[in-house]
Structure formats: structure tokens, C-alpha cells
Design a binder for these strands. Structure first.
Lengths: 347, 347
DNA sequence: CATACAGCACAAAACGTTTTAGTAAAAGGT
DNA sequence: ACCTTTTACTAAAACGTTTTGTGCTGTATG
């Protein structure tokens, strides 16, 4: 038997040589039989397969990777998480769902998914340089991680485009302009006339394009535009601050607020309640990304479900296609789902 | 220069041979200089280091792994997520924080962390078999994943013990018995006399030990024990169902409910409000795990913060210690933090 | 009957490291 | 002057695969 030293040492895994010996063929033949490559006779192939199965043989991933120049592992780098430095960020919901779906999709293709917190750190594991390709979540303008990967000509797919790289089209994500207008149209149809826009401060495509869409929409409808920027990390507290400014300030009070993040929206809602501004009667609220906070607030907040599972799946699949040499041009635009809830008078 | 084919082909990464040639030494010397192994003169060592730095040389992880028999990657398998099959489970909050901290800790030790959704599936990536060790989150009784790993003598650390493996002590987690009693003591000190216990249905140590602690505590204080089991995945809906049974049923109405999961607790709170049972006046609520739902409910719900970050860090560090041959006996018991909030009359 | 051409199997090279087992020169001890 | 040890370095083996190139059969083709 393989791996049996006379001393009863730890059972080492069977190698291709063990299979070859046991099946009475060469290692080449085993390799060919297992990978469906060479010209082995059906009989031999079956015999090899049987032996390999009996020995529970699996090719050593590193040996295979070394020879083929591929590792069978994809890297995942979520930029907003890096920025915060903590893994309890705004949108934890989105990221976990995204990462989970990405991991499962990779799995379905026989690949692993490795979390790489921040690729620009100097002390990242050796292994991070060895993965076959990267998924980079929500890059900021001229993202340094992206620069590094592209310079090293590592295949990479992003979630949302890099605002500073218009020619890079290997990304997956929603059509932010279109989706933003959809929400604004909804608010308008529910009677809103002065809609304020609450954006984050990250310089990524989601914020940039949504704000642009908001301004263009306001101009086209001849209504005043009012934009506030609150750091994503400020969460509900930040939303409440903004609400105070919007509802108690000198300027005419808005009758609707569209917040990019769910937590900001929840903060606006909480502050509105404190100020006795009734939602949805006196104020409509909507969010650009669905989250625990929007689903479970009272009243529940209308929000765009950015489909993290579908996005994670699509990102990994696009990356795999690139690795396989598929050059069909991106991006892959995914529709979001507008969840209409009580905060806009829907149910 | 290295990697420069006459055709301007893709720039391949520099190998140890490139460094050796450039520095005018053998590959052995380069390897020794870089790893601080052999007996190279200081001058040579510095020269090699300088060249390696200039060429941005990094050892190919697979080649190194193949030779050393180690991959530099740890695997992470969260059992509750496997069970649900979706990555939007109860406690998404806990898992993301845990996974993030684990990834960062691995990183700090120069290792990668790979997500492996379910190790018992037949189609898991080749690579999953190649990682150096595993962290398994919340194993169920006689967990098949654990069986598989231990049979293959893969180093493994769990979060929470396997209830069916009393002799396996390589785990990290809270002292569930002690923490449960702490919460019950708090409820009692706030006036509760009939405390109901709402557990999940997963057969893991957390549920098992907490319920045992509850029953023992009730017996010792001479108060009736009442336990309901609701699937973790039922979430707030499940908590609401349980609340209906507890608050409208024939049996004497409890004046406090202790829920294992934060989402169950949020569901109980929501249903209590619907039934006009005031919290905390008529009913105290506490949760055995902190979550978005407990922090942001109104009133906020008292909960045990199980310290996912510290737990993730400790789990990875224990695994790394095992890999390094450290045999100090486990387990590592981590204190939880009792967050007292309005649902028990605290603030 | 020689030639070509599948079909089948294999030996050896290659992937990029680390480790083993050296060698030659210098230093140290009598 | 001779042996021994240390220092500084290296050639080659090894890790477990895949891939390349080659040889050997036997059958079809000229």
C-alpha cells in the first residue's frame, strides 16, 4: 500500500505514482486517464479510474498548480472593508451575501475563494500573489489595488466600475444611473416635489454615478437639487445628523430623502420620528441599497436590492470566463430590484 | 532581464534563478539568504537581498508549498452557513465579523484564509484538500466535516466544541453555561420570576449547553423551566410565532424571555408590541447573541456580545500554534460581554 | 513489399522552490 | 607540517504533477 512506512508514520496521501503502480501503468497514463487528455484505451482508462477511486487519490493541488501555472484559487478583495479597516462596516449584509455567493460559485467551478483583506499592504501572504485572478469589490477612483493587479497583468474583475478607468470594462454591477432614476420616479409618483439626496463619501462609481443621475434628473424635471455627503461609516448616526440639517434648517424642508445607504436611511427615519415628522405622510424615504436596517425599520423603508448574490455569482463567472480566454467585452449590467415598502406609502 | 522573451510576451514573474544570475551566486545561496537558513556571509546576504528587492522577487507560493508540504493557506468552514445553504443566515453579522477577523489574523501571520462552503460536498475544489489546517465554526454533534478532517489528520480548530466529541479540546469559545447564568441572573435582578427560554434547533454546543444551564439555573432557583425550540433560520418570524404562543397561550404568561439568537429576540419584541405587551414594563427580553437586530430594535435589546472578532482571532492563532507543533491543551475560553439595554430596563 | 498512419503506452523534461549532501578554502589546534 | 573544524558556497535531488516527445505495435494505403 501507499504511504505506509514501516513505522506506522502519519498516513501520507497517495500520489499519482501509487495509482500508476497499483494499476500497472505509467504515471503519464494515469494523468491522461484522469484528465481525459491522451489516447488511452477505454479499458485502461476505466482501470485507472477505478484504482484512483479506490485509493481516494486526488492530485496534489500545489503540484498541479506549479506545473500548470494556475492555482485554482481566486482572490476576493472588498475595498470598502479595507478602507474602514474593520469588518463590521456599513452594509455588512451586502458583503456577506456577496462573499458567500462568490465562494459558492467558485466552488461550483472547482475553485477556491480566498479573502485578501488589503492587497496594498506589504505583509500580505505570499499566497495572495499566486491566485489565478481577483475580484475587487467597489473600487475607488484610480484604485491602487486595481493598479497593482493590472500592472502585474493579473486577471481581475471589479464590482462596479473604477470611476477613473473608463476603458476598463471588466466589471459587474447595476446601471446606477437608471436605477437611481427609477427610485426618483417612484418618489415623484408618490407626490414628492423636493427630494434631497444623501450620498456617501467613498469615491466609487456607485456614489459618483448616482449623484450625477440625481442632478440630471432634477434638472430635467425642473426641481431643485440638494445633495448631502455623509461618510458611509457614520451609519445611522450620520443619517440622523443629515436629517436634522434637512428638517430643521433654514432652507425649504424636503418632502422626500433618497439615501444611498440603508443605514443612512434608517438614521433619517429615526430622526424624523424624533422630530415628529411623520413617514410617509410628511416625508418619504428611500434607500439606494437594501439592508437589515431598511427591511426591519418601522415603517419599513423602500430600497433598491442590489442583488448581492447575483452580483457575486456574475463577478466570479466573468472572472472564470476571462481566465478561460473568453474575451467577450464587459461590463455585465445586472438589474436591481426595487423593494417598495411603507416608507413611500407602498406595502 | 528576466522574463523578457524576444516577442514581448507577457512579463512572467522573476524566478529564484533570475535573482541568482543577477547576484552572481547559486540558487541555493539565494534561498538561504532569503530564508535566513544557511551560512552565507553578511556581504553576500545583503547583495542577494538587494537584487531580490530590485527585481521584486517573491517565491512562487506553489513551488514553495510543494517542496515544504505546506500551502500557507487556512480553510474556514462555517457549519451553520452550510446547513442553511444560503449566506444570508441568522447572525450574518456574527459570521462576517468572525470571518473578517480570522482573515486579518491569518494575514498578520503571512497566511491566507480560504472560504470552503461545505467540505462534505463531493465537488469541493481540489484546493480544499491542500490547505494546512481548518477552522470549523459551530460544529453540530458528531459533525461529519470534523470527522472527515480528523480522519485525514488535518489540523483543525473549532469554534465551540462538538457536543459529541468530549475529548476533542481544540476549540475556542465562550463558557456557555456561565454566560447563560449571567444573563438569567440579570433578568432575575430586574424582577423576572418566570423566564422562558427560546433556543435554536441546531444541535451544537451553544444550544445544548445553554439549555442545560437554563434548566439547572431554574431548578436551583426553584422556578419553572419553559423551553421552546425554533429553527435558527426562522428568524424574526419564528421569534414572533414563539411570542404568540408564550403570551397568548393557556399557561401562565412569562415575564421575561431569553432568546438564543438576536433575530428571535427581535421577533419576540415585535410581536409583544403588536399584542400591547410593554417592554420592559410587562416583559423583559434578552438575547444570547448580539446582532444588528438587538442593537437597533426599539427598545434596544440586552444581549451577550460573543466577541466574534476576538473569537476569530483566537481560533486562527490556536490553529497556527497547532501547526507550529505547540501542544498546549485547549480549549480557549473567551469571556462574552453582556450589553445591557433598554429591553431589561437598563440603559 | 515498403510506407504511412493511427492507436497506445511510456520515459523524461519541466514547473520553481527547499533541502541534502557535498566541496574547497580558510582558520584553528597540536 | 599535519589534521580538524569552520566558513562560504554550490550541484543535484526532491516535492507531485502535466506535458512533450518518442517508440512500438498493428493495420490500412500505395
Amino acid at each position: 500500500m501507499f504511504g505506509m512506512s514501516e513505522q506506522g508514520s502519519p498516513p501520507s496521501r497517495p500520489t499519482i505514482r501509487d495509482v500508476a503502480r497499483e494499476a500497472g501503468v505509467s504515471v503519464t497514463t494515469v494523468s491522461h486517464a484522469l484528465n481525459g487528455k491522451g489516447t488511452a484505451s477505454e479499458a485502461t482508462r476505466q482501470r485507472v479510474l477505478a484504482v484512483a477511486d479506490r485509493l481516494a487519490y486526488r492530485a496534489h493541488p500545489m503540484a498541479r498548480g506549479l506545473r500548470q501555472g494556475r492555482t485554482g484559487v481566486l482572490g476576493l478583495d472588498m475595498r470598502p472593508l479595507d478602507a474602514i479597516g474593520s469588518y463590521l462596516p456599513e452594509g455588512v449584509d451586502y458583503f456577506m451575501r456577496f462573499a458567500g455567493a462568490a465562494a459558492v460559485t467558485a466552488l461550483d467551478h472547482g475553485l477556491g475563494l480566498m479573502l485578501v483583506p488589503d492587497l496594498t499592504r506589504s505583509d500580505i501572504p505570499q499566497y495572495a500573489h499566486g491566485v489565478d485572478g481577483y475580484v475587487v469589490g467597489d473600487p475607488v477612483r484610480d484604485d491602487p489595488v486595481l493598479t497593482r493587479l493590472l500592472d502585474a497583468s493579473v486577471p481581475v474583475v471589479t464590482v462596479g466600475r473604477d470611476p477613473g478607468r473608463p476603458t476598463f470594462t471588466d466589471w459587474v454591477g447595476p446601471d446606477d444611473v437608471c436605477e437611481t432614476k427609477r427610485v426618483l420616479d417612484l418618489l415623484r409618483s408618490r407626490g414628492a416635489e423636493r427630494i434631497a439626496f444623501l450620498a456617501g463619501t467613498d469615491d466609487n462609481a456607485w456614489n459618483v454615478d448616482s449623484e450625477k443621475a440625481y442632478r440630471s434628473w432634477a434638472r430635467r424635471h425642473g426641481v431643485p437639487a440638494r445633495v448631502l455627503h455623509i461618510p458611509e461609516a457614520a451609519g445611522e448616526e450620520g443619517g440622523a445628523d443629515a436629517a436634522r440639517r434637512l428638517l430643521k434648517g433654514r432652507q425649504p424642508r424636503p418632502d422626500a430623502v433618497y439615501c444611498q445607504t440603508g443605514r443612512h436611511a434608517a438614521g433619517v427615519l429615526a430622526e424624523a420620528r424624533r422630530l415628529d415628522v411623520a413617514v410617509p405622510r410628511d416625508l418619504l424615504i428611500a434607500a439606494g441599497s437594501d439592508a437589515q436596517q431598511t427591511r426591519h425599520a418601522t415603517p419599513a423603508i423602500t430600497a433598491l436590492d442590489l442583488m448581492p448574490e447575483e452580483t457575486g455569482k456574475a463577478a466570479v463567472e466573468l472572472l472564470i470566463a476571462r481566465l478561460a480566454g473568453d474575451t467577450r467585452p464587459g461590463p455585465i449590467v445586472l438589474p436591481a430590484d426595487l423593494r417598495m415598502r411603507a416608507s413611500t406609502g407602498d406595502d
